[in-house]
């Protein structure tokens, strides 16, 4: 009898724990949705802010976010995929691969605000003459550093999932290493690499701390990469911190969450395609 009751108690406790997750998620999403939906409209997304953000739209922040993410990806995608390719195709496991992998993992563990401080020192103070100081370029590169480990890891897994035997068959027909990578490894790994890239975009677009020192509230469309601009996350921070407009802040938050949810949905589709590809194993 006792054990039966214990079973029942455990079941209730576990069920409640699971329920908490759903409740937390729904309340966060719901709260942002209820408070933000009133602010969102086409003009909110596509108009310039007016009256110190209290009216008008958040267009500059959307453009800024897109630019920053684009810069981050333009830097991190080639470097990350390249590193992964080096690890899987050009090195056997050993000291060098261990050092690279540990560095990448350590990079992943660095708190995002520390990335911000590092980016500020490197791109704004040290390389300010080349990056335009606290510019969208500096912010994008800082985010690029931050998403590098994710891209390396997901690309590495994707390339390793391409069976070794397929590479051997390719070499056996007289293909060179590069031909094998281009025709066999990359096509097989593309869904996995793309998944990693989209996840990284989602992370980059949602981060505030790494770019908080570089992106200020700025009601204009950035003229170039070297100019200053603002992003959805930093705008959200300033709008709420300085009590400018909670309504616009929630509208921004909802926009941001919709962007990230959309990216996650796209990732899911890619993952499905990836698992279909793995059928051959």
């Amino acid at each position: 009898m006792l054990s039966k009751n214990a079973d029942r108690l455990a079941k209730i406790w576990l069920w409640l724990s699971a329920l908490v997750i759903i409740l937390v998620l729904l309340s966060v999403l719901g709260y942002v949705f209820i408070n933000g939906i009133g602010a969102i409209s086409v003009s909110f997304l596509l108009d310039m802010p007016q009256n110190n953000w209290r009216e008008g739209g958040i267009y500059p922040a959307i453009v800024g976010s897109l630019i920053v993410v684009f810069v981050a990806l333009a830097f991190a995608a080639p470097v990350g995929v390249g590193t992964a390719m080096y690890l899987t195709e050009f090195r056997t496991e050993g000291l060098v691969t261990r050092i690279i992998r540990t560095s990448s993992d350590a990079l992943n563990a660095v708190p995002s605000i520390v990335f911000g401080l590092f980016g500020l020192s490197l791109f704004v103070f040290y390389l300010g003459d080349y990056t335009g100081g606290p510019s969208l370029l500096s912010a994008g590169l800082t985010l690029g550093f931050m998403i590098l480990p994710t891209i390396i890891r997901t690309s590495e897994v994707a390339m390793r999932n391409v069976p070794y035997a397929e590479r051997m068959e390719s070499f056996g027909m007289g293909a060179s290493k590069l031909q094998t990578i281009r025709n066999i490894v990359l096509p097989g790994a593309v869904p996995g690499i793309a998944t990693g890239l989209i996840l990284s975009i989602g992370r980059a677009v949602g981060e505030t701390a790494p770019i908080i020192f570089m992106v200020a509230l700025n009601p204009t469309i950035p003229k170039s990469l070297f100019g200053s601009g603002n992003t959805l996350t930093t705008q959200l921070y300033y709008l709420s911190m300085e009590g400018i407009s909670m309504k616009v802040a929630f509208g921004t938050a909802l926009t941001l969450m919709l962007v990230i949810l959309t990216l996650n949905a796209i990732t899911r589709v890619f993952k499905k395609r990836l698992s279909r590809n793995l059928r051959r194993c």
């Binding site: 035997a165 397929e166 068959e169 027909m173 007289g174 096509p187």
Partner: peptide
Amino acid sequence: VALRKRVGMVFQRPNPFPMSIFDNIAY
């Protein structure tokens, strides 16, 4: 590369590439 073109190899397990029959042969 030229050597492996002259000396082909068939492995223990068949490993078709995940592409069409035509593309496999044309590889």
